[in-house]
């Protein structure tokens, strides 16, 4: 078991290495002078020089990469080209709102989506199933920001139940936090619910066709026990996998949602950095989110043995 965990953790290294290479080359391989690209159209020669110095653009590629990655391993992600602040400090300040939003979203999504999927599979081809499936396809088809604006329009502008924008941390109290976080979380959850409900339904349908479900029926096991004891545990691995893979969706959702609801998190930071071409910040954000994605999926991978005794390390 321990040696398996060690091996799995080790297998993450080449992936993260390749991510860093992609991120590094993205700027360098873009046609044209990277410094000119970053500085924008009306840059002075001094600005160009400052950028070249800051990012070491005059050195050979390999030297640049080694210096850059060595810095990152020491926790030095460089400084923002715009504000001159250390990138890591910039990110650290913004991380809180995004994490609390993401956690709230996942809780809502899992609590809503798994029962939805289970019931749809149980009542396969009934109106409940069609309703769940329609909602799920719709969830994939509406742009996230449209969901956000519609919720904003209905609950804040028309009904005036909730404050329209802004953010209060959880430390300010649960009510003020939820008041402002619930609309963004629902916005984010819409696509996540669609994804998880769909996968839960598909996995449950597969499992319900298995021989051992027939065996359980032949023993006289009732429907509820078949669904929640025999089937759901067997369907857990694909469901857990999709929750992890869906994390990528969550990140792009966070970018949009924070923009709409004016939440000072990682997403807003990303958009601001992109619009200002603050490349050190962009690099750091891609690297960090990719690391978090890889870590979450690693944890989910390792958790499979909790659901399925056939997976032993």
């Amino acid at each position: 078991m321990l040696s398996y965990i060690f091996k799995r953790v080790l297998s993450v290294v080449p992936v993260l290495f390749l991510v860093s290479v992609f991120v590094f080359l993205m700027l360098r391989l873009t046609p044209g002078d990277p410094a000119a690209i970053l500085a924008g159209d009306n840059a002075t020669p001094e600005t160009l020089q400052r950028i070249r110095d800051a990012m070491g653009l005059n050195e050979p590629l390999l030297t640049q990469y080694v210096k850059w990655i060595a810095g990152i391993l020491r926790g030095d992600f460089g400084t923002s080209l715009i504000s001159g602040v250390e990138v890591l400090d910039l990110v650290a300040k913004r991380v809180g709102p995004s994490i609390s939003l993401a956690v709230l979203t996942i809780i809502i999504a899992v609590l809503v989506a798994i029962p939805m999927g289970v019931i749809a599979a149980w009542k396969h081809r009934s109106w409940v199933d069609y309703l769940v499936m329609s909602f799920s396809v719709l969830g994939f088809s509406v742009p996230v920001f449209l969901v956000g604006y519609v919720l904003l329009l209905v609950f804040s502008v028309k009904l005036g139940w909730l404050p329209p924008q802004g953010f209060k941390p959880l430390s300010a109290g649960i009510a003020p936090f939820l008041e402002r976080a619930i609309l963004p979380a629902l916005t984010l959850a819409s696509i996540y619910i669609a994804l998880i409900a769909r996968m839960t339904r598909a996995a449950m349908l597969d499992v319900l066709n298995e021989d051992y479900i027939r065996t359980a029926r032949a023993k006289g096991v009732g429907e509820r026990r078949i669904l929640f004891v025999h089937a759901l545990k067997n369907a857990a691995v694909p469901i857990a996998t999709i929750v992890g893979a869906g994390f990528a969706l969550l990140i792009s959702g966070v970018v949009v949602t924070e923009t709409i609801f004016n939440i000072p998190g990682i997403g807003r930071l990303t958009v601001d950095a992109v619009l200002a071409r603050d490349y050190p910040v962009i690099q750091a954000l891609i690297l960090l989110t990719a690391s978090v994605y890889v870590a979450i999926n690693l944890l989910i991978d390792l958790s499979y043995s909790l659901f399925d005794p056939r997976i032993r390390y």
Binding site: Y212, T215, R217, K219, G220, V221, N234, P309, R310
Partner: peptide, 30 residues
């Protein structure tokens, strides 16, 4: 009535048992 008055065994023993439940528990369930 099932299991009490009439019971059935199937062709594929490899797939007819629930893979995530211990076999003792599966018999006890009856």
């Amino acid at each position: 009535r099932r299991a009490r008055d009439l019971a059935m065994i199937f062709q594929e023993p490899m797939t007819a048992l629930n893979p995530v439940m211990k076999v003792g528990a599966q018999i006890t369930e009856v």
